[in-house]
Nucleic acid binder design. Structure first.
Length: 501
DNA sequence: TTCCGACAGTGGGGTCGCAAT
DNA sequence: ATTGCGACCCCACTATCGGAA
């Protein structure tokens, strides 16, 4: 029903009907499932555990609370034999489901529900079902970090129930995200910036986003997906603990820096953040750069304009713990900041409106990131069949650079990005003509077609034969004017974007 | 009537921890 | 010891809907 229509209003109507029909105690679970999430967040079941579902039941008998209880039990399984035990429990649930129920549950557990109803549409549906303003629902979701509890409150108590969701120090909220622009001029245009309207131009570091809560001297650190990673980061806790605040919520970035202040590759920061144990004697320390404050000693600042939040930040955080930032209305000055950030090895800048409040969880137009862009002409070595709306189309390109030593090609990664429907149709036809070998997923082709690829940088790769891979590769256009012999070489790739060490 | 902001979809590379092989 | 899997870090881009202009 929901997947069957492309219209958002129709989806909202259908979803709201489901919510009204649900028992009050089921509402949170129903909302989670319909938006493709589990209240448990994760239960250790993925694609591999779902490959061979048991025969479906003839008659429906499963209830939502039963499924929820089963998922909780599956999520609690651990230790030796846990993989087999989880699969056993998954099979038991699926065996009680009818064919359509099985199909839904498999897609839900695999994270492939894809029915066009994630947080945004579901928030509208909750608002419709509970007859409350959609903006109030969205705000509650941002503050609570989950749809389910918000749905329960809205359905039971209406708008009054939503008022109970406030910023609580110690509970993470969804972080504000940035839109992207290809150049400083376009970033300025998006924000309406100019001599009359200044903006903040902040360095963008290639690290891990962090929301740092201080509550009476106790510090907690949360990731973008609201996971608590405090215990992994003692040096971050130590750095923030010294600030002259009683209660505060900060937003910032964590990054591993070398002694000269230049950044380590992202992989170093990522590994450091993901490591739970102290297995190495001297882990690479992470540096903290705070760029926003959402609460300060009793005062919520979410709705305060950017300039006011920055003033509050500067009042309690010393410059060495703040993200470098320049306020200007001059695009040329902004470009200088961008150039300096890049020259020091960083990703680029984020241009921020001085007026907008902190719009958590939405890719609001208040922040716009600008990064440099590299390009290469590479050769397509193979193509993979697409899924979902790209089913039946050759979608994901295997990209290779010329290897002058062997006369062959070195694969540097894949991309499916940047392709229009028209281009997808064209390349599906074209690659069939060039096909030399085909398996279930992949069509291998004669290496003749040259494609211009944009990418952010080059990183060490344990996967690809050249030992390097492109980061965030996307298609700009095909180059019918170039032959494979004129494509860029592996040496050019290394020169264009050196791998940092 | 046209324009544009918000949203969902389609996957990319990488790391770690754990259980199975 | 190595491999497979699940969970999360980082992410760009296009199509579409529906309200704003």
């Amino acid at each position: 029903m929901v997947a069957g229509t492309s219209g958002r209003k129709a989806k909202v109507t259908a979803l709201a009907g489901c919510l009204r029909a649900a028992e009050p105690e089921e509402a949170a679970t129903v909302v989670a499932y319909l938006s493709g999430e589990l209240p448990q967040r994760q239960i250790g079941v993925g694609y591999a555990a779902l490959r061979e579902p048991p025969p479906p039941a003839a008659e429906p008998s499963l209830t939502v609370p039963e499924v929820d209880a089963a998922f909780t039990e599956i999520g609690a399984v651990s230790g030796a034999g846990s993989v087999a035990r989880r699969r056993e429990l998954v099979a038991a649930v699926l065996g009680r489901a009818t064919r359509p129920e099985q199909d839904f549950l498999v897609r839900l557990l695999a994270g492939e529900l894809r029915q066009g109803a994630l947080d945004g549409v579901m928030a509208e549906a909750i608002a419709a079902a509970a007859d409350v303003p959609a903006a109030a629902v969205r705000r509650a979701v941002m503050l609570r970090g989950a749809l389910g509890p918000v749905a329960t409150a809205a359905l039971a108590e209406g708008a009054r129930g939503l008022d109970a969701f406030t910023l609580e120090v110690g509970r993470p909220i969804k972080p504000m995200l940035a839109a992207a622009a290809p150049s400083m001029d376009e970033a300025f245009a998006k924000l309406g910036a100019g001599p009359e309207t200044e903006v903040a131009v902040e360095w963008k570091l290639d690290g891990i986003r962090a929301q740092v809560h201080v509550s009476g001297g106790e510090v907690r650190v949360f990731t973008r997906t609201l996971d608590d990673i405090t215990v992994r980061l003692p040096e971050v806790v130590e750095a923030v603990r010294g600030l002259p605040v009683r209660d505060a919520v900060f937003d910032g970035e964590l990054i591993a820096l070398r002694p000269d202040g230049r950044p380590h590759p992202f992989q170093v920061t990522s590994a450091r953040t993901a490591t739970r144990t102290t297995k190495t004697a001297e882990p690479v320390p992470l540096s903290v750069f705070l760029f926003d404050v959402l609460h300060l000693d009793g005062a919520d600042l979410l709705d305060a304009p950017g300039a006011e939040r920055d003033a509050a930040l500067a009042g309690v955080v010393p410059a060495e713990l703040r993200m470098p930032r320049v306020v200007t209305g001059d695009a040329a000055r902004a470009k200088e900041v961008f150039d300096e950030s890049v020259a020091r090895g960083h990703e680029g800048v984020v241009v921020k409106s001085l007026d907008t409040p902190y719009t958590a969880g939405r890719r609001g137009a208040g922040w716009v990131k600008v990064k440099p862009r590299h390009t290469l002409d590479l050769v397509v070595l193979a193509v993979e069949w697409g899924h979902g709306r790209r089913r039946g189309l050759l979608s994901n390109l295997h990209l290779g650079a010329r290897d002058p030593e062997t006369g062959g090609f070195v694969m540097l990664g894949k991309t499916f990005k940047g392709l229009t429907d028209e281009l997808l149709a064209w390349q599906t036809r074209r690659f069939r003509e060039l096909a030399v070998r085909e398996d279930e997923w992949t069509v291998h082709v004669r290496p003749e077609l040259v494609v211009e690829i944009a990418f952010d940088g080059v990183q060490h790769s344990p996967r690809y034969p050249g030992g390097i891979a492109l980061r965030f590769a996307r298609v700009l256009r095909y180059r019918p004017d170039k032959s494979a012999a004129e494509a860029d070489t592996i040496d050019t790739v290394r020169a264009v974007a050196p791998v940092l060490d």
